[in-house]
């Protein structure tokens, strides 16, 4: 899948947060969007992931506009995964139940949890595991339907360095298996893992570095 954003402009009230952004993301790539707080990277991520409609400009998925994708919930469930800065696991569900919440095929949950190193924690609740394990469960939830692209917004913001690097390793590993990752972060270490690094400043892309 190819995601393209063309001439994206976005305002929050009178605040101009994105200024004519053009970007193209391929499935299976690992793209990092870096920049300071307020640079517009989270807004761009939200627009690319269909959660937010831009003030102007167009986002297409394989040349199809969002309006042509049919039911956006169904499209999102099949094609897009999310990882947030906070794990946002549902506290009254076990890790397995959290991951299976949107699963199209529940049989894949166990093997996915094993591959993320949290298989033994399937029956635990989110307050019974560490921060790193919680974030791994959140990543598993994003990957459970094998989406074309996973969007992650500051996914290591609440993790220590060791766990943060572990998350990047996982992203790298799954991107090599064909899932695209678009990660917004102000952590410079992500540059060591990403194929493409997009640097943003004041709502504009100021640099694109491809490896």
């Amino acid at each position: 899948m190819r995601i393209q954003a063309k001439n994206i402009e976005h305002y929050y009230g009178i605040e101009h947060v994105l200024r004519g952004v053009d970007i193209s993301i391929e499935a299976g790539s690992f793209t990092a969007i870096i920049g300071e707080s307020g640079s517009g990277k989270t807004t761009l991520l939200s627009i690319l992931s269909t959660l937010l409609n831009p003030t102007s400009g167009e986002v297409t998925f394989d040349e199809k506009a969002i309006s042509e994708l049919g039911n956006i919930d169904v499209f999102r469930r099949h094609n897009i995964g999310f990882v947030f800065q906070f794990h946002y696991l549902i506290s009254y569900l076990t890790l397995r139940e959290n991951i299976a919440l949107s699963a199209l095929d529940e049989d894949s949950v166990e093997s996915l949890m094993e591959s993320l190193g949290i298989g033994r924690l399937a029956a635990r609740y989110s307050d019974e595991v560490s921060g790193g394990e919680r974030q791994r469960a959140a990543i598993a939830r994003a990957l459970v339907n094998r989406p074309a692209v996973v969007f992650a917004d500051e996914p290591t913001g609440n993790l220590d360095t060791k766990n943060a690097l572990g998350v990047y390793e996982l992203f790298k590993h799954f991107s090599q298996e064909g899932t695209g990752f678009v990660v917004a972060s102000h952590d410079k270490k992500i540059a060591d893992y990403a194929d493409t690094i997009i640097e943003m400043e004041d709502g504009k892309i100021v640099k694109i570095l491809k490896r």
Partner: peptide, 12 residues
């Protein structure tokens, strides 16, 4: 409920 509220809690 707009999931954007979750993202906006986490970043810019």
């Amino acid at each position: 409920i707009d999931p954007m509220t979750l993202i906006q809690r986490g970043g810019a």
